[in-house]
Amino acid sequence: MIGTFKGLLTTARWLLKRPVTAHYPEQHLPVQQRYMGFPALLMDDTADEPFCTGCMVCVRECPTQCMSAQMHDNPKFADGTSHRRKIINEFEINLNRCILCGICVDVCSFDAIEMSYEHELASYARTGSRADLTLLLDLGRRYVNMSGWTPANAEKNVAEVALAKRAAAAAAREAPAGDAATEETTEGGE
């Protein structure tokens, strides 16, 4: 009898408190900063092209083989507006297969793919879960706006910075040896 009474007292204490439940379709709880939703591709705005060069390392490392990618020669590399020799042409992720493990992000050395905050991508069409390059870049843009993402290795991957660095290196090679040394020290000082 005492135990039952104790239990009733415990539940009675919660009667007047606010419920902790969020009623889902009407109310959306915010995701955490590190939340891993579906993967998305990111745009390099300085060259107006994706970061992805189609090196296929994420495609190979994916435990569920949910991705496919195809690359071609980058026309902007010939123009000199980008440092990427190859650029992604087609990229498809089958979101039905994706298990959100984040291995693709770990292996990518071009800052090209990131786990976005997207988690409500249900669709009525059977093929609706296949995300192509356009959709993946859209998701990436939304992710950047929401999280304030910046590339981890900007020196290597952002076209503007990388091109400037290459130009500086080329200038240093052409200039006499003494000047090159001073230039390098100033660069290091920055």
Binding site: Q32, Q33, R34, Y35, M36, L100, C101, G102, I103, D106
Partner: peptide, 24 residues
Amino acid sequence: FESVTGARMMHNFIRIGGVKEDVP
């Protein structure tokens, strides 16, 4: 867990040789 590992259930956070990244 979500704020540390990014996932609520399938974390893939503990890696061979340590953990994926430092805690927030």
